[in-house]
Amino acid sequence: MADQIKIRAQNQGEVTDIRILMQHPMETGQRKDDKGQSIPMHFIQTFTVSLNGKPIIDGQLNTSISRNPLFTFKARGIKAGDKLSVAWTDNSGDRRQDEITVA
Rank of each mutant, 00 (worst) to 15 (best):
M1F: 08
A2P: 09
A2E: 07
A2R: 15
D3A: 04
Q4Y: 07
I5Q: 00
I5C: 00
K6E: 13
K6L: 09
K6T: 07
I7R: 04
I7G: 01
R8D: 03
A9S: 14
A9D: 09
A9H: 04
Q10W: 01
N11Y: 01
Q12M: 11
G13Y: 09
G13V: 07
E14F: 03
V15R: 15
T16H: 10
D17A: 06
I18E: 00
R19Y: 03
I20Q: 00
L21P: 01
H24W: 02
P25F: 02
P25C: 01
M26Q: 14
E27M: 05
E27G: 00
T28V: 03
G29H: 07
G29R: 12
Q30L: 06
R31T: 09
D34Y: 07
D34G: 05
D34N: 15
D34K: 12
D34C: 04
G36V: 06
G36R: 10
Q37S: 15
Q37T: 08
S38D: 09
I39G: 10
P40I: 03
P40R: 15
P40D: 09
M41R: 02
H42A: 04
H42N: 09
I44S: 00
Q45M: 03
T48G: 07
T48F: 04
S50A: 12
S50F: 05
S50D: 06
L51G: 01
N52H: 08
N52M: 07
N52S: 05
G53E: 11
G53K: 13
G53S: 14
K54N: 10
P55T: 10
I56H: 12
I56S: 15
I56G: 12
I57T: 06
D58C: 04
G59P: 05
N62L: 08
T63I: 07
S64K: 11
S64L: 05
I65P: 00
I65D: 02
S66K: 13
S66L: 13
R67C: 02
R67Y: 04
L70I: 10
L70D: 06
F71V: 00
F71K: 01
T72I: 07
T72Q: 15
F73M: 14
F73K: 11
K74V: 08
R76Q: 14
G77T: 09
G77H: 12
I78D: 09
I78K: 08
I78Y: 11
K79H: 10
A80Q: 15
G81T: 04
G81K: 14
D82G: 09
K83P: 07
T89Y: 11
T89G: 02
D90C: 13
D90P: 09
D90Y: 07
S92K: 15
S92E: 13
S92P: 05
G93R: 15
R95W: 05
R96L: 12
R96S: 14
R96V: 09
D98G: 11
D98N: 02
E99H: 08
I100K: 03
T101S: 15
T101L: 14
V102E: 15
A103G: 15
